[in-house]
Structures are given as structure tokens and as C-alpha cells.
Simulated assay, not measured.
Amino acid sequence: MIPSLARMTAIGTYVPKSTLTNYDFEKMIETSDAWIVQRTGIRERRVAAKDEYTSDLCIAAIKNLLERYPVSIEDVDFIIVSTTTPDFPFPSVACQIQKAFGIQSTGAIDISAACAGFVYGLQLANALITSGMNRKILVLGSEVLSKVTDYSDRSTCILFGDGAGVALVEKCEEESSFLYATSGTDGKGGIHLYRTGLSSQIDTTTLSGNTKIVQNGREVFKFAVNTLTREVPKIIHQAGFSLEQLDWFVPHSANQRIIDAVCDRINFPKEKTLFSGEYFGNTSSASIPLALQLGMDAGKLKKGDLILLSGFGGGLTHAHLLMKWTV
């Protein structure tokens, strides 16, 4: 178990209005709705407007949080944003959020851990609060992946969508949310999922993509399934629980086939997983908060439930957080 004096007290989400369906893709590339659903579980994804960026999605998600819960953010003392699609290299998205809400005294950082980023953000928030450095933190995962998707790449363009989620994490000595956390990295797999930047080479491999997402789907699939199959039972056991006690498994919603394969291997009921990809696509760091919100809206998630969040993706990275649902 990890030290924790932190509690998640509220969440909010936002997705853009424009929808890109599988039937739209039938007009763009050689594919079909049935093929996409069978291979990914995705039917639709949301697409940001031309003038809509990651910071806009974050601000909308925070407004959604404030509409749903009787909380304030004026006294937030740290903002953490996980994104691979910031508006600019700098200023950070977190700084733009501070400006938008006029928060007077707060730290602000962006972190880059791809699809594991939201879980990393929660781990960091717990550490900052438990250490005594901070008391109230906004943790966001937000992406506009449509702006970096190569729509001529048949194997990847069907996957990605845009969205944002936010959690408010506060100091609470009576009942913490966070029970156990782990993370890991396989940097050798970085060549299997990337966007080019200032450098166009990893080790001796020359990269392609022209700033768009490039993914070796087969290798990422293997990494995700093998990693989750190994880590999930180990995490539950090390935390002193059994898989039978886990109420909800909330992995990154990359692909329904990944989640099904993991559940089959560890003998965990698929109906006890939360997936946001069906109507939002793969939203990278936003997929887990979107799945949590869908679970709440459907009446599935209840206070006191034992849940495991598992993020995995570019890096290659993975991060896991076992928690008691307190929202």
C-alpha cells in the first residue's frame, strides 16, 4: 500500500461536438463499419473544430466539473495536465488553465506520458499532497489527436478521437482514495508508437510521419496485452486484495480487443471493465476519465468500489493505480 492523504472529490469531462463515424471512414478509405467495430470496438469518435485546441477542451472539462459538483477551484495550488498535443511547446496548457480561471497562486505543469499520462498525473497529485507540499490539485488528461492523425493511414486513422477529463484531488486525512500504485517503461519500444519532433531519428532508426502519429499496431497490441496480463494480477495481490474483490477495471480505452484479450488471460469478467472507446475512440490520456464518467452516468460506479486504473501507450509506458472510488 502507498502512503496517501489524498482524496478524489470530483470529475468532469468534455468532448467536441463534431462526430466522425465509421460510415464517414467508408467514404475516405477502404474499410467498413463492421470491420472497424470487430477489430477495435469503436463506432464513433469526436473531432475538435479547426480553432479548438487542447486548452479549450481542458477549460470545458473543468466547467463541466464545476457544474456537477459543489466545489471551488480558486484555491487550487497545483495544476497537472497530461497531453501529447499541447497548443504550444510553451506556454504549457496548465498555464493557460491558470489564466482562464484566474487562479491566484498555483504551480502548473504539463506532463508527457501518452496514454498513461492521466494515471501518472493522479500518482503525482497524491505524492504532492501526501508529502505536504500541496493541498488541492487539478489533474487533467486532454488530447486533440485528430490534428496529428494521418487520415491516409488506414490502420491508425480509424482509432483516434479528441476529448478531455479532469479530476479534483484534495487533502483528506479521514479517507484517502489511493491504495496502491506502480509504473514502468520499455523505452526500446519507442519506435513502435511516435510522432516526429525536433529529431527525426531514434537510435539508428529514421522516423517517418511528418509530425503525424505513426504506430506499429501489432507491436503495441503485444506490449499492452502482455504488460497488463502480467501487471494487473500482481498489483492486486501486492495490495492485499484478490481479483474477485475488484469491482471495476478501467484500462486505457485503446482498443476493445486489447481489453478482451487481457480479461480472457487473467480470467476477469469483461462486464466489469469500463470502456470509453465505442463512441469517443482512442483519446489517449483522456480515455480513462471519460470511461469513469460514463461509468458514473450509467450508475455502475458507486462510492466505496475498488477500481484499478491502467494506462499504457507511447514511450512505451504503463502506469497503474488501485483506488477506492470516493467521488
Results as ranks from 00 to 15, higher is better:
Ile2Ala: 06
Met8Asn: 00
Pro16Cys: 11
Thr19Ile: 15
Leu20Asp: 00
Leu20Glu: 02
Thr21Met: 09
Thr31Ser: 06
Ile36Ser: 06
Gln38Phe: 05
Gly41Ser: 11
Lys50Ile: 14
Ile59Phe: 07
Leu65Glu: 04
Ser72Phe: 05
Asp77Gly: 06
Phe78Glu: 03
Ile79Ser: 03
Val81Thr: 09
Thr85Trp: 03
Pro86Gly: 09
Asp87Met: 12
Phe88Asp: 15
Gln96Pro: 08
Gly102Glu: 11
Ile103Ala: 10
Ser105Pro: 00
Cys115Pro: 11
Gly117Gln: 02
Gly117Met: 04
Gly121Lys: 07
Leu122Pro: 05
Asn126His: 08
Ala127His: 12
Asn134Leu: 07
Lys136Cys: 09
Leu140Trp: 01
Gly141Cys: 08
Val144Ala: 10
Leu145Tyr: 02
Asp150Met: 06
Ser152Met: 04
Asp153Arg: 04
Ile158Ser: 09
Leu168Met: 10
Cys172Leu: 01
Glu175Arg: 14
Phe178Ile: 04
Tyr194Ile: 06
Thr196Met: 13
Ser200Leu: 13
Ser200Phe: 15
Ser200Pro: 11
Asp203Gln: 14
Asp203Glu: 15
Gly209Asp: 02
Thr211Lys: 15
Val214Ile: 12
Lys222Phe: 08
Lys222Thr: 13
Val225Lys: 01
Pro233Ser: 12
Ser242His: 09
Arg257Tyr: 13
Arg257Thr: 12
Asp260Ala: 14
Val262Thr: 10
Cys263Ala: 07
Ile266Ala: 06
Ile266Glu: 08
Ile266Lys: 07
Ile266His: 08
Ile266Val: 09
Glu271Trp: 05
Ser276Pro: 09
Tyr279Leu: 15
Thr283Cys: 13
Ser284Ile: 09
Ala286Tyr: 01
Leu292Glu: 01
Leu292Lys: 00
Ala298Arg: 07
Lys303Thr: 12
Gly304Ile: 11
Leu308Arg: 00
Ser310Arg: 00
Gly314Asn: 05
Leu316Arg: 03
Ala319Thr: 11
His320Leu: 14
Leu322Phe: 05
Met323Thr: 03
Lys324Gly: 08
Thr326Asp: 05
